[in-house]
Design a binder for these strands. Structure first.
Length: 427
RNA sequence: GGAGAGAUGGCUGAGCGGUUGAAAGCGGCUUCCUGCUAAGAAGUUAUGGGUUGUUAAGGCCUAUCGAGGGUUCGAAUCCCUCUCUCUCCGCCA
């Protein structure tokens, strides 16, 4: 959520920044409603003060033994009633205005960081660096990972569709083992890098989704359990960040760094026909997520480190990738700055997203009301939140199957996974 | 699923409808004191919104005792609705 004070005082700058994302945004209604609300509040609190004074006065008189039926008391009560009648007119209007401002604020995305490249779409994203060209497999006639998976009998799409529906897969035998090995490997590495593992609930409430920015605007993208105000989580960033919702942390407690293995659920509404085969775009997929809750002064630094932590997994697996910095038109709703890691897929002859590391600054912290208090400083400050994938497990498996395929149809197991899988070749 | 209990500040825990934003204790902070440590003394100690002020310090108003309504001149306290937590029984991995 954006700071309403900032919108009030620097509306032009804020609007300019929002327009770097898209020109659809306007601030006029918010500014107007906010001004009205404050005008009413001014009158209302004055009336309230008067009413409180009357209340106190009556209390004093009663305590010192005044007759409740005395003219003085009766007239004071009347005065109190008058004030209350006026309040009853103002209060609902103010409340309504406040709610409108709030709901408009919740619909506004984060402002892009000053360093985020300006652009309209993904084609304007900027390649920051590239790694592992020497590991790009030579040759042609590569099989796609889903072909390899079906051939080896480790990915079973048909049966998954039978028990569920399209965009779900089942892993069998070495496929399931590979998924499990990847999860363990990724977690072990990230724990080593200083992240504390958590296993949060998968069904989470609406407040949590609002806290990280999935609601109210993107309800179409998550699965909901209608009877319960519970949702299937689209990413672990939601529950892990919301761990600290409505909390005031001590400054010494940050940075908090968490990693989590987590099944993610997405409706993928509006992507019909896209990536229908294989492990790339599923309604359910596993991810190892990285989340940081940090002091504003260290957040840029922590962001860079988070990207490095995600890259370290790809490097350990010797999978070629590139790092993109997303442009203002392509960064997510809550993000101010975002790097994507894209892994090389030989069959498609292209790079595909496998991790996305966002710095949300105080945007989510405001929505979720996560603050910290510094010793000696008065008041509280908002923390800053970051989240990134380290990595998407299914897509990692796809990349391994494709990059490690051998001419004989078998798939070599990356060195670092061999201790986990206890074999060096699949097939 | 059945029966019951409860939700108060960083924590524990009081609170007859009337200066209660809230006793007390613990913890935290500041100062003083003792040769250090330990101990002791005094003071201080929530968060948000508005307004004023130099985008300061501070002042003033207001709200907040799980959430939302209601009664009342006045609600932490009474009434209603909801949410959550806990205990016992049943069922269950």
């Amino acid at each position: 959520m954006l700071d309403i004070k900032k919108i009030r005082e620097n509306s032009e700058l804020v609007l300019k920044s929002l327009h770097q994302r898209s020109t659809e945004y306007t601030l006029e209604p918010i500014i107007d409603l906010d001004r009205q609300q404050r005008e009413i509040q001014l009158v209302r609190t004055e009336l309230q003060a008067k009413s409180n004074e009357i209340g106190k006065l009556v209390g004093q008189k009663m305590r010192s033994g005044a007759n409740p039926q005395s003219e003085e008391i009766i007239s004071l009560k009347q005065e109190g009633n008058d004030a209350k009648a006026k309040l009853a007119q103002l209060e609902p209007r103010e409340k309504e205005l406040k709610a409108k401002v709030e709901s408009l604020l919740l619909e506004l995305p984060n402002l892009p960081s000053k360093t985020t490249p300006v652009g309209k779409s993904e084609s304007d994203n900027v390649e920051v660096r590239r790694w592992g060209d020497e590991y790009i497999p030579e040759g042609s006639n590569f099989l796609s990972h889903d072909q390899i998976g079906e051939k080896l009998g480790i990915i079973d799409s048909e049966r998954a569709v039978k028990v569920s529906q399209s965009r779900f897969v089942a892993l069998v035998g070495a496929g399931a083992a590979l998924e499990r090995a990847l999860i363990n490997f990724m977690l072990d590495r990230q724990i080593e890098a200083g992240y504390v593992e958590v296993m949060p609930p998968v069904l989470i409430n609406s407040d949590s989704l609002q806290g990280t920015g999935q609601l109210p605007k993107f309800s179409e993208e998550s699965f909901k359990c209608d009877k319960d105000d519970l949702w299937l989580t689209p990413t672990a960033g939601v529950p892990v960040t919301n761990f600290y919702r409505q909390e005031i942390l001590r400054a010494e407690e940050v940075p908090i760094r968490h990693c989590a293995y987590y099944p993610c659920f997405r409706r993928e509404a509006g992507s019909y026909g896209k990536d229908m085969r294989g492990l790339i775009r599923l309604h359910q997929f596993n991810k190892v997520e990285l989340v940081k809750i940090v002091h504003p002064d260290t957040s840029e630094d922590e962001h860079q480190k988070m990207v490095k932590d995600a890259e370290a997994i790809l490097q350990a697996l010797k999978l070629p990738y590139r790092v993109l910095e997303l442009c203002t038109g392509d960064i997510g709703f809550s993000a101010a700055k975002c790097y994507d890691l894209e892994v090389w897929l030989p069959e498609a002859n292209t790079y595909r997203e496998i991790s996305s590391c966002s710095n949300c600054l105080d945007f989510q912290a405001r929505r979720a009301n996560i603050r910290f208090k510094e010793k000696g400083k008065k008041g509280t400050q908002f923390v800053q939140t970051l989240n990134g994938s380290g990595l998407a497990v299914g897509r990692t498996m796809a990349a391994i199957l494709e990059n490690y395929q051998q001419p004989d149809g078998k798939v070599k197991v990356p060195d670092v996974l061999q201790p986990y899988l206890k074999q060096d070749v699949l097939g």
